[in-house]
Structure formats: structure tokens, C-alpha cells
Design a protein around this nucleic acid. Sequence first.
DNA 1: TAGATTGTTAATCGATTAACAATC
DNA 2: TAGATTGTTAATCGATTAACAATC
Lengths: 214, 214
Amino acid sequence: MQKNSVKVSMAVVRRLPKYYRYLGDLIQNGVMRISSKELGKLMGLTASQIRQDLNCFGGFGQQGYGYNVEELQKEIGRILGLNQTYNCVIVGAGNLGQAIANYEGFRREGFALSAMFDVNPRLIGNTIRDIKIYDIQDLGTYVLENDIQLGIICVPKEQSQGVADTMMENGIKAIWNFAPADVQVRDNVVIENVAISESLYTLTYLMNEPQLEI
Amino acid sequence: MQKNSVKVSMAVVRRLPKYYRYLGDLIQNGVMRISSKELGKLMGLTASQIRQDLNCFGGFGQQGYGYNVEELQKEIGRILGLNQTYNCVIVGAGNLGQAIANYEGFRREGFALSAMFDVNPRLIGNTIRDIKIYDIQDLGTYVLENDIQLGIICVPKEQSQGVADTMMENGIKAIWNFAPADVQVRDNVVIENVAISESLYTLTYLMNEPQLEI
DNA sequence: TAGATTGTTAATCGATTAACAATC
DNA sequence: TAGATTGTTAATCGATTAACAATC
């Protein structure tokens, strides 16, 4: 997939989804081809950086022409693993869990949500978009028996590590954690700790940033 | 606030909220002091990096002792602008908007949410945690008349730029955008485009990452 | 005081940008 | 063909790490 198995830096990896999204928008707008210069202008990156990033994975462009938008998006999707299906569960069926369950882009990209879990007896047994909410007691068994690869944590921070542990004991491969506490994972399990409020605090920092005296 | 008005890099700024959160947890656990070494171990950073980061803003530690946890958290909160109150509105009262409205950490840190807006007539007039949902038609007037500084966008991507424009025409200072399309802002307005799915796609990348051959 | 740990400078490492030959 | 634009190497820039004198 990537050139002679050299590790790609996280800086590059974190830009890939953004490329994927912008290219998707271009496809929607009927754009067939694009140069690194044009794409850079659109995304706020340099043309040089875009070519460097893409060439970590291969030469997808053509001299004198640029990149075929549809082809490039497909390639990046494949690099990101979006050509596969992932069996998912959401733990925590509050507003955030429901928001994710309702997001249609989620299933479109191959995330097969099959169950949600909660502690609240008033939620257990309900369904959200045909997805049943189960008792969190049954999480471990469910993950194991249904070959769940991806667990999404939307519980309060006090419960997040416990939920992650249950998932890992039953063979989960990846955890997407929205609780505002970093979850620790064992080897061979990958984690994204989202901590949404961090981007809010970055924003308030920027609101108050002292202007430079030159 | 920061040493002789030198611009602090975004790499540093984006770590500040994480320091703030970890220090808050330490306070909750009754920890009074901490060294850069211990904090680094906890957060997965080097001691050196922590000292470098903090010294962008001043010398908050003491040789031979380390840092006073409570004092340091307070200082970082002040640097992030969390000692102030921000008048906020949320536009889009779906699950995600409601999740943010319900998040108690939000008001605790000085974010004064006074109204929500939506296009859906079935939502308009309802309240969420005492916050009334208004017709999105009234957004501009409301932002102007109530001195709203921070706008939170939780609408579909097709509407996000329009909502942002209305906010900016009426004097908003900052936009926290959850729509999966980057919103463009004028000078003097700060923006955080969150694009939650990007961290999910990073996760699937990591799940499929080829193991290094050495 | 001795030990610990900071603040800060210097060294290293990695990421971004620039440049240009290759080529469509 | 001439023009455009890639892929890739080299140069630059910035961020991280290491080292250590200062000092609590």
C-alpha cells in the first residue's frame, strides 16, 4: 500500500481524511481533474505538501494533467480503509451516541452499526434508526459473538475505561472515545481519544490571542 | 500574558487544553504538586516538552519542587481564556446540538448558552435545559441584540456557511463548526472546524496500517 | 546542605517548502 | 511541439529533545 513499508508520519495521516472530504465535494460538483496547486488553494495547503503527502503512497497524478478527482478519492479511501466494512457498537445512548447513530455518512462509508448499549433502563429496549439499545451488561458477550471490530464510547468519563476494558477483553480492534478522559489501550488495539472540548478551548485561546507588535 | 509578544505555535496551543484537563483530574484526585517528569509520564509527553510549552507563557514552576497543580491549572485556564464568560448560541437543535447543550462541563467553564435555533417547526418553541429553541430566521437579530460572541454550528453542511455568514454579519467573534464542511471566516473572526469523521478515518487507517518490516 | 527539578540554551530531528528534471 | 504539472531531491524551517547551570 505505501512505498517500501516506510512508516508514514501522523501529520500526513491526519490530512488524508481532509483530502478525502474535499475530493468528495469536488466529485459532487462535477469536477473531473485537479492540480495540486488548485487543490492546495482550496484546502489551504501548499501544492508541494500535497504532492509530498500523496507520494507517500504512490504516484496518483500525471505530469501536465494533474489528478483524476474520482480516482484519487477512491485511492485515498482505500488507503484509509474505507473500502471495508466495520462492525460497530455504540456504548452510551445519550444525545451524542444518538447523534452518531443518526449520522447517515456513517453507514454510507461502511460502518455497520448493529447495536447500542446503555445503563439507563428507560433507554434499554428502545430502538434508534432500527438499532436496538441493549443493557450494558451484555456488551462483552455481544462484542465477542458478533465479531465487533470498532467500539464507540459515548459514556461519562468515569465509565469510559471500564467500557474500553470490556471491549478489549472481547477482541475489539479499535476504539473511538468521546468521553473527556483518555482511554488506555493494549497493544494491537488502536484508539482515538476525541476530547471535543479541546477544540473549544483552542478557540477561546485564539479569541484572546494578543495581537503581534511588529 | 505570553513572553514579549512572541507568537506561540499552534502545536503548543493545541496541547494547552490537554494540560488543563489532566491538571483538573489531578486536582480531583487531591494531588497538590507534580513535576514535569511525572506529568509527562501521565500524558505521554516528554518532561522537556512540557517545560518548553509552559515557558512560552512564564515560569510557573519552582526548582526542586515542580509545579503547584492548582495554580498551574488556573494559569492555563487563564491563558485559554476560561476565566471569562462567553455568550453562546447553538444553531441546529438536533442530537448533536442537544448533546452540547446538555454537556454540563460547558456551562461550568463559563460558556453561557442563551438560545438555540433550528429550521424545524416541531422543534421551534421547545426548550432544552431551559434553553429555548427559536426560528433560525431570528438568528441574526438575536446575535446582534444579545452580544453573542460564540456561535456553535450543528446544521447540515449545506447550511453551514450561510449560518456562519449571518453570525458574522451580526458581530460574532468565534465559530465552532461541527458541520462536515470547512466554514470560511473573515478577518477578526476565529474558527474551529471540527469534522468529527476525520478522527474516525484516522482510526480505520491505523487499524489497517501495514506492520513495519525491519 | 544535598537532592531535585526547573528554566533555558544548544543540538537534533522531522516536517514543510522550494526547485527542477522528467514527462504527459 | 510547447505548456503544464507531476514526482522527487535538496534546502529550509520549525518543533522536539537533550543538556546543564541556576536555584529552590
